[in-house]
Write a protein that binds this DNA or RNA. Structure first.
Length: 185
DNA sequence: GAAAAGATCTTCT
DNA sequence: GAAGATCTTTTCC
């Protein structure tokens, strides 16, 4: 399971994320990811291990959740071996199960449900306490799927960052309607 | 110890 | 298309 961040980011495309909360089963399929690791100036782990990014240094398959701009959550899947700060940001997903509950949590529906890191976490009910959670255990589980075809994956520069912005480390499924529109090529 | 920026989203013009 | 919301972490006196 342990790999470099870019390989993990590509492998996560098409995988499913399930969160069982308050009697609801929320299930999505990952369609857009970004890779981050210690050698990357844009990564939270670039300046070493701290109290905030500690989860990123756990073994592969853990969750790293953080608060951005004081009001939105973002979720990463840790990719590397214990002690290596690399992981994958989940940027967008396709809702598969629990649509009504996600719409209730978001206060919106349709394409606005899960087409962004903050929106996805709000729809899925993923918050700070899920930091350092093992994604092999309930209530939040990552379901591995066989990797999608290489020619289904589009690689571009990442979104919304200032440092190392030109690095081609963002991956999404070609033509998928749940990938945010302006970036879909 | 103080100030600024940040892997974002929503609302208003 | 631009700015506001809102708070943690980092950086610079």
């Amino acid at each position: 399971m342990e790999t470099d961040a870019e390989t993990a980011a590509k492998r996560l495309l098409g995988c499913e994320l399930v969160h069982e909360v308050e009697g609801h089963r929320l299930r999505v399929r990952i369609v857009e990811t970004e890779a981050y690791d210690e050698a990357d100036p844009a990564s939270h782990t670039h300046r070493g291990r701290t109290a905030r990014n500690d989860a990123m240094f756990l073994s592969a398959g853990h969750a790293y959740v953080y608060l951005i701009h004081g009001l939105h959550h973002c979720m990463n899947v840790v990719a590397g071996f214990e002690g290596h700060g690399c992981g994958v940001l989940i940027r967008a997903a396709e809702p598969l199960e629990g649509l009504a509950e996600m719409e209730r949590r978001r206060g919106r529906g349709g394409a606005e449900l899960t087409n962004g890191p903050g929106k996805l976490c709000q729809a899925m009910g993923i918050t700070l306490p899920m930091r350092e959670h093992d994604l092999g255990e309930p209530p939040l589980i990552l379901i591995r799927r066989s990797p999608v075809d290489q020619d289904q994956i589009v690689v571009t520069r990442r979104v919304g960052i200032a440092k190392n912005a030109d690095a081609p480390r963002r991956f999404y499924l070609r033509g998928d309607p749940w990938v945010p529109r302006p970036w879909t090529t």
